[in-house]
Design a protein around this nucleic acid. Structure first.
Lengths: 231, 231
DNA sequence: TAATCAAGTTAGCTTCTTCTAACAAAGGGG
DNA sequence: CCCCTTTGTTAGAAGAAGCTAACTTGATTA
């Protein structure tokens, strides 16, 4: 019974729903204006949706969602809201961009992904570290520079690229994408391993370290994905 | 000159590109298999894309991207990869779901949103707090319960809902969505304000607090979005 | 070299979505 | 009560994307 609808059909249902919340009745003209299409397109859409039992309309009368149509419309709108929250609250986008993107993305998300996205938003809303983290991210994403360095969280964890010459540290985690990560792990940069920074070149690149009695020279880009704990 | 292409056209260009990386030549048959369509559909697509100067093909020969087509294909694939990274690394989705969703989402994202999404991924990769935070989120999203409570970060910040009767705290931040947030701020729950928890009802709802000499009774749902610092 | 077969092509149809232009109904003002 | 404006509808066309069925072509093999 898991019927699925076209993006266009979902848009119409959502429009009917939203307009019904704001006005007493839903008219062809208003739907057309809301979706930026011409009236005959709305009429055609209503006809096909009526055949599917999602809306009802008397000739020359108002459009009404059936219970079935209402359920679909609500679900679409929920997806919309989830995307909108994510785009504004997490990515920090302006309402206009967020609204436009949410309108398109709402038709293209699997239930599982939707659920996770919603959880991410509520987690960030509820968790103080979440809001701090997101604030840091947004500062980073607008200024281009990572805030120096996530102030106030006294965990003692740093990036390898932030160490000074002579500092000793223990590898906590190696990030980066597949290729890079594999290469670093292959070099001996595995969690738990101890290392010491021998020398940092003038512009911070490369960084020479010693680990497991080997000398390694890392590019700054590489050192930026290695999380360490100073010891 | 900002031409934009249909999702279908983008899919074909991306397929040509990916197949050209894996095989010496790109054939109609392989493209059809890759995209799950029949051969005549590929032929038709090649024809319209050729008219737009995006591909070249000699009759009964191989398909080749023009420089222009290659640029578009690469750009689409970048969008794909960005979505994929987000879905796997941040939402923690399995590769199959992530791949499928990325294939659909890649056609529906604005440049601004794409940029932010990419920055979020790299920020989380680089920032130790990011990875910790995401680990917490993923624990939360699979178990349903927020980890109790983001252990190891000694910031002293909590949610108002986590305080015990008698505890004193200072408001740090008020989260929640528009309506809820406004209402809480209107009640006097503004950052910097001090409060004391007077009484917590048996099931944690409602929570009675005193702030600015007023007594307030908060629903648990409300208290969950208020970040405080114990004093 | 001729036969065969897989790959590529064409023609023609279907569905979906939108449009314009022309027509019909409803309703308010004179 | 009739005319006129606004709103809604129909008809017909167009374009995007896919399909099946029937054909070429090019290459392989007997």
């Amino acid at each position: 019974m898991e019927t699925t609808y076209t993006p266009s059909a979902e848009d119409y249902l959502e429009a009917f729903y939203l307009l019904s919340l704001r006005k007493k009745v839903v008219r062809v003209k208003d739907v057309a204006a809301h979706l930026g299409v011409k009236m005959p397109s709305v009429v055609a859409a209503v006809k096909t949706l009526a055949e599917k039992g999602l809306v009802q309309q008397e000739r020359y009368g108002y459009i009404e969602l059936t219970p079935k149509g209402l359920a679909v419309a609500r679900e679409v709108y929920e997806r919309h809201k989830t995307w909108y929250s994510f785009l504004t609250e997490i990515l920090g986008l302006d309402p206009t961009t967020a609204e436009k993107d949410a309108c398109r993305l709402e038709h293209h998300i699997s239930p599982l992904t939707l659920e996770r996205l919603g959880k991410l938003v509520s987690f960030v809303r509820e968790c103080p570290h979440g809001s701090r983290f997101i604030a840091n991210f947004q500062e980073y994403s607008t200024s281009g520079e990572r805030p120096n360095f996530c102030p106030g969280c006294g965990t003692g964890q740093k990036l390898l690229s932030e160490l000074k010459a002579g500092e000793k540290a223990r590898v906590v985690r190696v990030g980066g994408q597949d290729m890079l990560k594999k290469r670093l792990l292959g070099m001996g940069l595995t969690p738990g391993e101890e290392l010491i920074v021998k020398r940092i070149a003038p512009l911070g690149d490369p960084i020479d370290i010693q680990i497991r009695n080997y000398d390694l020279s890392l590019r700054r880009e590489e050192a930026k994905v290695v999380v360490v704990e100073v010891i």
